[in-house]
Design a protein around this nucleic acid. Sequence first.
DNA 1: AGATTAATTGTAAGCGCTTCAATAAAACTC
DNA 2: GAGTTTTATTGAAGCGCTTACAATTAATCT
Lengths: 334, 334
Amino acid sequence: MKPTIRDVARMAHVSISTVSRVMNAPNTVVESKRIRVMEAIQKLQYQPNAFARGLIYKKSFTLGLLIPDIENLYFAGVIRGMQDACISLGYSLMICNTDRDKERLLSYIDNFHEKQVDGIVLASDRLYPEYYDKLAGCSIPFVLVSSHSDEYDIPSVEIDDEAAAYDAVRFLIELGHREIGMIGFDHDNSVSGPPRYDGFVRALSESGLRHNKDKIRYANHRFEHAYQAAHELFHAHPELTAVFCVADEFAMGAISYLKDCNILVPGQVSVVGFDNLRMSSMFIPKLTTVAQPIYELGYRAAEKLHELLTTGNVATLREIMEHKLIVRESSRER
Amino acid sequence: MKPTIRDVARMAHVSISTVSRVMNAPNTVVESKRIRVMEAIQKLQYQPNAFARGLIYKKSFTLGLLIPDIENLYFAGVIRGMQDACISLGYSLMICNTDRDKERLLSYIDNFHEKQVDGIVLASDRLYPEYYDKLAGCSIPFVLVSSHSDEYDIPSVEIDDEAAAYDAVRFLIELGHREIGMIGFDHDNSVSGPPRYDGFVRALSESGLRHNKDKIRYANHRFEHAYQAAHELFHAHPELTAVFCVADEFAMGAISYLKDCNILVPGQVSVVGFDNLRMSSMFIPKLTTVAQPIYELGYRAAEKLHELLTTGNVATLREIMEHKLIVRESSRER
DNA sequence: AGATTAATTGTAAGCGCTTCAATAAAACTC
DNA sequence: GAGTTTTATTGAAGCGCTTACAATTAATCT
């Protein structure tokens, strides 16, 4: 049987309220007793019961994180950042992997509600009205990471996807490439799909290369799809000398495809990725990519949620973090 | 303000105990009232408070998972499996990333204790006496995944590391390789280090290749270390035509190093990895590797913990799952 | 010394829920 | 139809904790 505050009180020969006070306001209890109590706590390995506390404070000191795909290194980085932030802010973290399943996400929200999480971070998924309604319905505060909402005023942390994509494509153009394709995210189910496409088009337009603007195939988050997309893309446009991929995993898929066709990267085709996953410097060739501050995004999201929870508000609703082009080996001058 | 059972009772014109019963034993309340209550629950979006429940049941229906490194795809797979199991068993999951930091792990245990998790899964780390003592001290049941304990009788789920390593090296030998090196885990801080080394040595011995048995370097979980280890290994033993790596990430590091030295894989050197991460079929060349049933390991660990929690015991203390050699492109006949 | 004030401690209510004993209502018996 | 059993419902206690408030003790002031 776990020791309770009563057991501690009994052992230290004080009342339970005194024990409670040494835990919550130590300087209001006289030293001799305080020491006795602390010794008893020590001896009994006493840990206050979070249920009882939660019942009173109506707070769980727990945050929830909803992520679409835990086997994506991107989210692993976000989690790590968020968890570190949670430690320093005094929260526990409950991570739920939705596998991009709407129903599952919704049921996780119910679960979070029941477990009384103080707030939720929703990662990289569109904020569908169903999500919003449910979250609003149980009035759990939440923030978005690697995402934002145009319909609702929800605090968010992300990078400037349009600008990041622009930078990547611009880099390719400066390298002398004139025939540039793209492997993008589906516009329907992603938040970053459209802005990255816009960045692609803007860079092309500025340099009079609009003829490339439909040399695009879409893939669905995973390597295999990107491989397939690359296949279709290069089949339709064998003239391409460069591809902008909106995810490192897509870049790997594309390179893998090109390799299987004996097309050299970067010898014949340059590939730029996106995210700067840990893997991207392990791949052969090492990926040129747009780095997102992944860890920091997660860290910041937790901080922002904390801000929302404690002050009821946030200083900046939509927060943009810096991206940065990292040039490695998968790109070359034309 | 969140609605409580009182609000539901008031709205449905019944007592709170009736409301409680429609949630826990619906058939003991007459239909007319039951319907009224359910409507009220619906209307108020009522969710019972897990704190209050936990206080009574002394159960949180939450499991804790302690993992060393969330940015390792291996653990991502374990998490996914474990979470799926948790869903079907009715648990929530609290994942904590220790970053291989002992202090941090210990403090997570405290946290789990306070939050009253029902049980803990400890992934892939050695069960140091400090861990055991703390866990035993707060009497939280736990199981080990991808690990086991010789000192204590703790339920565990893992593969047969010795046999798996043996199979990998044996495969290399059958391919005709006679000069075989290894990049292994440190024996001090890993559970699987020694048995995988033993498997390596056994395969060598059986074929009269014991002269290779010290052609080993150790690396510390990450790609970069493996790169460095490969550098040292090939510097000392330029005659090697094959390397057995105890992790796919090591294999990638080794291949990366060889690539930088213009040594062809598999043309000149064959490399076998371990784990069969999702990445291993994305890499170039695709990795020949020993597959672990990663997802299943996580799934099974949760089931085993559940078994321990409900029956107070487990059928088989140390459970071994099947491994399997997957031949892809990083290995070739000599 | 007696009265006032300050510091410390204890008592008890209550957070939201479950559950058992008690009550009320309905359904049987003979 | 009085007595008994069965069924349905409710009131109240209590899970482990915090905290207002009351009670006690110590300290300070006339």
